[in-house]
Design a protein around this nucleic acid. Structure first.
Length: 1092
RNA sequence: GGGCGGUUAGCUUAGCCUGGUUGAGCGCGGCGCUGAUAACGCCGAGGCCGGGGGAUCGAAGCCCCCACUGCCCA
């Protein structure tokens, strides 16, 4: 058995990880897996994006998953441990665009551009190149023993085929359709976005009131309100609420029709008009909203947009008032809503119901096309607002403009303001499956419960059809081929590579664009046209949604399409409610009408020191910072500054209209201020502390606030654990403990040993339960409580003397056997959480001697079983009681300035009626350092009694002095002094010394002589000499003068500093008897020793 | 505009589901212990449990309203 050293987590981790690789531990684990069908645990990994870096959140996520994998494996399951990587999509396109210096899609597709082929190649190469480094980063986190060599990768053909299968099944089941509808589009990325791909930011915008002239009367106007003047170009209707009251306002010589609730605010507050004044306004006839239906108006820009007239010719309802109870509100605006069905989902819905043609003269790049008229053609919609407002002012129809702050959708990736425009897209009709999905949701075990019963449920309730098409370049091509003959237009959906080969006679090696688009075939329906693939790619969420069957080939090399089994467990962050949790379930329901995961753990975001993590704010923590001990320690002041910056940053980030100069200045100043302060770095290295910390400190579903202080506390837990092993090993070595020879019989154990066994097995029972219901965060908390309170602070303290080398009692081998046993169990319990530390301890302490059970790695071991007979609740509660008494007595002694190491005469306990019989009497005697413990029926009437009480006991401590106790007092202090000196001079435990002690004080000398044997034993002195002569100083010897107070018969030790002052002639005061001490009342023992 | 969290000591938080004298760690002040020792223990100060109302014998907890804060949806 090698000796364990000081706890160096970093060194251990690096060595163990290397060792696992040279020993091929993963192969051994795989070989040992059970084959039985019912022994499979299907964990399904949600794929991280291959952008190269593992952030703290990704690390947290993977560590939580890793724990479950390792636990389930210990429980004897064959765990599916295939990790995945998401390789497609916009983030990678954006990275490559940046790398190639491209600004948008056009530059790729242009004739002189870089070319689609090269672009795709770059994307592929980049994605693939990131996998290996990410694998290594995950392994470094302790997430080893996953199938890192064979992860599922979404760009592989087998995977793409899986996604095609989803599309095909959805088509067969009647859930795939093409639709024309307004979608939020990103003009920069040139694609439509699904609703989980945009983010709302507060922006400054202009809202305007415009009057639309009535057809019936040129002096009558309808007043509308809008925040998007550019959509007026596509206006086809006004919407009114039939239940709201409207009014004809007389304003100067005109009549304005608007919602009655809005009149005062607009006319008085905004326009500054006065009621009934000559130039003011007056209330006229009131009209119920329903009466406005069908009223016609003239489009305010009719002259500029000739196409508007064509629309009206197409459908007479164009430029008339439509009714909507849902989308027109009384408050805000004017009670009349401008409607452009091509640019808003509500407008679209109402327009569709009324047969209004969908007018959307805006291209994907955000610019108007020719239908918008010559003035607007080619102009970018977000830059045209001012121009339109000026035109309206010129026409005299702009009533009022004002600045407002509102939320507006932006692209989640490039933060560009989105444009609502109607486009042709492919949809999955998930709305038709809503009820079934809600039902399936009820059957999923959600951790926390609200993730499913509230969050996911409310998502499902507002579910809209899933737009699966994207107009991008790097992704899985939609496997939809359409006949190009206008009269035919037959649709064929391809579900596999074989099918494609059958239909087209060929299947390319690469299924991505542009290669795939060369695959065409003659339409079999019309026999005229050619089947060509639609140009769109699949939404990346469809990639990950199809993982169940798309990844099967990676999992076990077989296709499982229709025969897939649901995952037993998945775990991701709360953003996946609308992301992966949704796409998974949707894909499964669309293709197979059943759910594909049984349990789902949802975690939150990672914050740092109370703020969102951000590089620019300076509070970002990376996994490598943790490993290298480079986490910056922030003071409260620094945190305060950062909070200021964070607030300012969040305000100014998307607020381009406001001047940010002052904010910038404040930000700079604040930054400077905290950078000035000396940077302090943590000295905690390695990842194991983080593993323990990140799992334990966050309830499920909640955000994880990384806080340096908490992190440090956690280190102490692991350090204590390590010290415990160190202690155990040292004692076993010194005592020549032999695990094969020294065993314990439960029935013969002491109560204390029974107690720690009970505690240990209770913990096993508890952790097993927690793991089985995925209550992961409670696990480190329970372990911490056990390690610190039960094991280190209590059990080890109690048995310390008992297992001493010099202890004669043979029982110590039994105790060591128990200690070893519980530490072994603890090591196993720690293995899923801290795989590297537990491996180290296992290898050094348990492996060699456990021949029958010995395994090459702790990760081949089984999870400990609960042994019921070891769990004894009554012993646990008895110990609890005893511990309270001990704490109480100790504090009683402390209050009376009696040092714990000084023995006291007796302790009497008076039980109250509810007390049970008290066990652990010896323990109490020991821990309180009293000569005897008595259970009494009334308060003792003799001695010097001090008292206190607990709910179950009254406590009487007799502190009456005696010669023997005085001697004990001196001895305790003397021993402590010598031991302290030994340690100071770096003497090893057990190393013998040549000791000479002298005192001229008769009582002290007598004490030394009376206790000589005990001194020799305790400080391992050989030889030892006691004299009453002055001790001479000699080279190579260590000297010390030990002083006590001799007032009365106090004999309390005087501290070195105090003694020094006294010998300088300054009067001191005894800390025990409080009497004054001079040179004459000091008793001295001279000590001199050296190594033998 | 709607929904979901959070608000407990200077800081970080437990307790809430299932009502019955708020519990810890860090920090602070004091004391002590000690061959697990760059460790540990004890004592102390520090809480109108965000505010208001309600049902209850009784609320940090349950119900309603409000405030601040974060997130999600529109």
């Amino acid at each position: 058995m090698k000796t364990l050293e000081k706890f160096d987590s970093l060194e251990i981790e690096e060595r163990i990880i290397k060792w696992w690789e040279t020993e091929k531990t993963y192969d051994l684990i795989k070989k040992a897996e059970p084959k039985a069908k019912n022994k499979k645990f299907f964990y399904l990994d949600g794929p991280p994006y291959t952008t190269g870096n593992v952030h703290l959140g990704t690390a947290w996520n993977k560590i939580l998953k890793d724990m479950i994998i390792k636990y389930k494996r210990m429980r004897g399951f064959r765990v599916v441990d295939t990790p995945g990587y998401d390789t497609h999509g916009l983030p990678i396109e954006v990275l490559i665009e940046k790398k190639l210096g491209i600004k948008n899609k056009k530059e790729i597709l242009d004739q002189n551009g870089i070319g689609i082929e090269k672009f795709i190649k770059e994307c592929r190469e980049f994605s693939l190149s990131q996998i290996e480094p990410m694998n290594e980063q995950f392994k470094r986190l302790g997430c080893n023993f996953w199938n890192w060599d064979n992860p599922y990768i979404t760009l592989k053909n087998t995977y793409i085929q899986g996604v095609w299968w989803t599309i095909k099944k959805a088509w067969e089941n009647g859930y795939l359709y093409q639709g024309f509808r307004p979608m939020n589009c990103c003009p920069r990325c040139g694609t439509a976005l699904a609703k989980h791909e945009f983010e709302y930011y507060d922006i400054q915008d202009t809202a305007i009131f415009v009057k639309f002239r009535s057809v019936e009367d040129p002096k009558t106007f309808y007043v509308i309100w809008t925040t998007t003047p550019w959509t007026l170009v596509s206006n086809t209707n006004i919407m009114a609420n039939p239940d709201i009251e409207y009014v004809k306002m007389r304003v100067k010589d005109e009549t304005w029709i608007m919602g009655i609730a809005s009149t005062a605010d607009l006319l008085q507050n905004k326009l500054g008009l006065t009621l009934k004044a000559e130039d003011g306004f007056e209330y006229g006839e009131r009209i119920p909203g329903s009466k406005l239906e069908g009223k016609k108006y003239i489009h305010p820009l009719a002259d500029e947009i000739p196409y508007q007239a064509e629309l009206e010719g197409e459908e007479p309802k164009v430029h008339s008032i439509l009714m909507s109870r849902e989308y027109v509100q009384e408050s805000g605006g004017s009670g009349l809503v401008h409607s452009a069905p091509g640019h808003g989902p509500e407008d679209f819905e109402v327009g569709l119901a009324n047969g209004i043609p969908i007018f959307s003269p805006v291209e994907m790049d955000g610019c108007y096309n020719s239908q918008a008229g010559k003035i607007f053609e080619g102009k970018y919609v977000h830059e045209v607002n001012r121009e339109i407002m000026d035109m309206l002012i010129e026409k005299g129809t702009l009533i009022h403009e004002e600045n407002i702050q509102h939320e507006y959708a932006h692209c989640w990736r490039c933060k560009t303001k989105l444009v609502y425009r109607a486009t042709k897209q492919w949809f999955f009709k998930v709305t038709a499956l809503r009820n079934e999905m809600l039902k399936a949701n009820e059957e999923i075990l959600w951790i926390p419960k609200r993730a499913g019963f509230t969050n996911f449920k409310s998502w499902l309730n507002s579910l809209q059809d899933w737009c699966i098409s994207r107009q991008r370049l790097w992704g899985i091509p939609l496997s939809i081929w359409v006949c190009d003959d206008e009269d035919c237009g037959d649709i064929d959906v391809i579900g596999s590579m074989n099918e494609l080969k059958e239909k087209a006679g060929e299947c390319p090696e690469d299924l991505h664009i542009p290669v795939i688009d060369q695959v065409t075939w003659k339409c079999s329906k019309c026999n005229k046209g050619t089947m060509r693939r639609v140009p769109d790619l699949a939404d990346v969420w469809l990639d990950s949604g199809s993982v169940m069957w798309a990844s099967q080939q990676f999992v076990d090399g077989h296709e499982h399409y229709d025969t897939w089994e649901p995952a037993d467990f998945i775990l991701e962050g709360k953003d996946q409610i609308r992301g992966w949790f949704n796409s998974l379930l949707s894909s499964a329901m669309l293709s197979s009408k059943r759910k594909n995961y049984n349990a789902c753990f949802m975690h939150g975001w990672v914050h740092s020191h109370g703020m969102k993590m951000s590089k620019s704010i300076g509070n970002a923590v990376l996994p490598e910072d943790l490993i290298e001990g480079k986490v910056e320690i922030l003071t409260e002041k620094q945190k305060e500054n950062m909070r200021k910056i964070a607030t300012l940053a969040s305000i100014s980030k998307f607020d381009k209209t406001k001047k940010t100069d002052t904010k910038k200045k404040v930000r700079k100043a604040a930054k400077k201020k905290f950078i000035k302060d000396d940077k302090r770095w943590s000295n905690i290295k390695g990842i194991e502390t983080f593993r323990f910390y990140c799992v334990g400190n966050v309830p499920p579903g909640r955000d994880f606030n990384f806080d340096y202080k908490e992190y440090t506390d956690t280190f102490k837990v692991l350090n204590t654990l390590w010290n415990t092993y160190l202690f155990a090993q040292e004692k076993m070595n010194l005592n020549k403990f032999d695990a094969k020879k020294h065993k314990f019989v439960y029935e013969e154990l002491s109560l204390v040993d029974k107690w720690i066994l009970s505690k240990t097995y209770s913990l096993i029972e508890e952790l097993t339960k927690l793991y089985d219901v995925y209550e992961l965060p409670s696990i480190p908390n329970r372990l911490q409580d056990y390690i610190l309170n039960d094991l280190s602070r209590w059990y080890i303290t109690i048995i310390r003397d008992r297992v001493d080398v010099n202890a004669e009692d043979e029982e110590k081998f039994t105790t060591l056997a128990v200690l070893r046993h519980i530490l072994y169990k603890l090591c196993l319990m720690m293995a899923p959480l801290n795989p590297m530390i537990s491996e180290e301890i296992y290898q050094k302490m348990f492996k060699d001697e456990m021949i029958s059970k010995s395994k090459a790695s702790i990760h081949l071991e089984k999870w400990p079983k609960v042994v019921k007979k070891y769990i004894d609740e009554s012993i646990e509660s008895q110990m609890h009681e005893a511990r309270q008494i001990i704490d109480e007595v100790r504090s009683l002694k402390s209050e009376n300035k009696i040092k714990l190491r000084w023995p006291t005469k007796s302790l009497s306990l008076l039980p109250t009626e509810e007390s049970k019989e008290l066990e652990f009497i010896d323990l109490i005697e020991d821990m309180c350092n009293v000569k005897e413990v008595l259970i009494v029926e009334e308060k003792p009437d003799k001695g010097k009694i001090i008292e206190t009480e607990l709910p179950l006991y009254k406590i009487y401590l007799d502190i009456k002095d005696s010669k023997k106790l005085q001697q004990e007092r001196i001895l305790a202090d003397l021993l402590r002094t010598i031991q302290f000196l030994r340690k100071q001079n770096k003497l090893q435990t057990g190393e013998e010394i040549n000791l000479k002690i002298a005192s001229k004080h008769p009582f002290l000398l007598g004490t030394l002589k009376d206790t000589k044997i005990r001194i020799i034993e305790k400080v391992t002195a050989n030889p030892m000499e006691i004299t009453n002569l002055q001790i001479e100083k000699e080279d190579g010897w260590i000297f010390h003068d030990f002083h006590v107070c001799t007032n009365g018969k106090c004999f309390a030790m005087i501290r070195e500093k105090a003694a020094k002052k006294i010998f300088e002639g300054i009067e001191g005061k005894c800390s025990y008897c409080s009497k004054s001490i001079t040179q004459d009342t000091v008793g001295t023992i001279q000590i001199k020793f050296k190594r033998v």
